Amino acid sequence: MNATTDSIRILLCDDHRIVREGLKQILADTPDIEVAAECASGPEVMHKARVEAIDLVLLDIAIPQQDGLDVLRQIKQEMPRLPVLMLSTYPEKQYAARCYKLGAAGYLNKSADTEQLVAAIRKAAGGGVYVSPQMAETLASELSARSSSHERSPHESLSHREYQVFQLIAAGRSVKEIADQLELSPNTVSTYRGRILEKTGASNDVGIAMYAVRHQLMPV
């Protein structure tokens, strides 16, 4: 690692070892960026963020044991000055706005090129917020639409957990499968499902899936 004394020290979290190794290899040729620590699950992120001397967290959304957005929320509560750059396979349209609202310093799709990744890390570590050109255009369009209509889409009123359940229902998962994946009780999932039906105006799970398709919110 060609790290310098002024390098940006990163905590890298992704549950796929091959992804972590790939990112480390990409960043190894960038003198001012150093992968100082790595982990593969939500609880590990919190532990290492507390004990390691790091300048930024590079965090995947889909990590085991604790959802990446929950980890983001917890980091911003405990360490509000620590920048968190989200990295995901999910399209920006699905999750980026939620990440920014929770305090993320940026959102990158894993298909981003090396220059974009390095630029995002430097921007976030410097105290700024990285927004890709594509996301900037999307956010501008949404703000323009809201200012003219003064209304939000129904799914924007879903809480983070409701949105998770919404996505899994749209993907065809059963209440039990959702409960197992999110480590919730089936009754709790059913409660969230009821709120989703009420907020989106859907009458059943098929209606939820159709709503997701119509608004381009289908999980990938």
Results as ranks from 00 to 15, higher is better:
Met1Gly: 10
Asn2Leu: 14
Thr4Arg: 09
Asp6Trp: 02
Ser7Arg: 08
Ser7Ala: 15
Ile8Ser: 06
Arg9His: 14
Ile10Pro: 09
Leu12Trp: 04
Leu12Glu: 04
Cys13Pro: 02
Asp15Gly: 07
His16Phe: 15
Ile18Val: 15
Gly22Glu: 08
Leu23Phe: 13
Lys24Phe: 04
Lys24Asp: 01
Thr30Leu: 00
Asp32Leu: 08
Glu34Gly: 10
Val35Trp: 09
Cys39Glu: 09
Val45Arg: 02
Met46Trp: 13
His47Gly: 01
Arg50Met: 13
Ala53Val: 02
Val57Tyr: 05
Leu59Trp: 14
Ile61Gln: 01
Ile63Gly: 05
Gln66Pro: 03
Asp67Pro: 03
Asp70His: 10
Arg73Phe: 09
Arg73Gln: 12
Gln74Ala: 15
Gln77Tyr: 14
Gln77Phe: 14
Gln77Leu: 15
Gln77Trp: 14
Arg81Tyr: 10
Leu82Val: 07
Leu82Gln: 10
Leu85Cys: 12
Met86Asp: 02
Thr89Tyr: 09
Thr89Val: 14
Tyr90Gly: 02
Pro91Ile: 01
Ala97Ile: 12
Cys99Met: 07
Cys99Thr: 13
Tyr100Trp: 02
Tyr100Gly: 10
Ala104Gly: 06
Ala105Gly: 15
Leu108Glu: 04
Lys110Leu: 03
Lys110Asn: 06
Asp113Glu: 07
Gln116Tyr: 03
Leu117Pro: 06
Val118Ile: 11
Ala120Phe: 13
Arg122Asn: 11
Arg122Ile: 05
Lys123Cys: 14
Gly127Ala: 06
Tyr130Pro: 05
Ser132Ile: 08
Ser132Met: 07
Pro133Ala: 07
Ala136Tyr: 02
Ala136Gln: 11
Glu137Asn: 06
Ala140Phe: 06
Ser141Gln: 15
Ser141Leu: 15
Glu142Ile: 09
Ala145Gly: 10
Arg146Gly: 03
Ser148Glu: 15
Ser149Ala: 13
Ser149Phe: 02
Glu151Cys: 09
His155Tyr: 15
Glu156Gly: 05
Glu156His: 12
His160Ser: 07
Gln164Glu: 05
Gln167Trp: 01
Leu168Gln: 08
Ile169Met: 10
Ala170Asn: 10
Ala171Ser: 15
Ala171Met: 10
Arg173Leu: 03
Lys176Ser: 08
Ile178Asp: 11
Asp180Trp: 04
Glu183Gln: 15
Leu184Met: 13
Asn187Ile: 02
Thr191Cys: 00
Arg195Ala: 12
Ala202Met: 03
Ser203Ile: 04
Asn204Phe: 03
Gly207His: 03
Ile208Ser: 00
Tyr211Met: 00
Ala212Phe: 00
Ala212Gln: 01
Arg214Thr: 10
Arg214Lys: 15
Arg214Gly: 06
His215Lys: 08
Gln216Gly: 04
Met218Glu: 01
Pro219Lys: 14
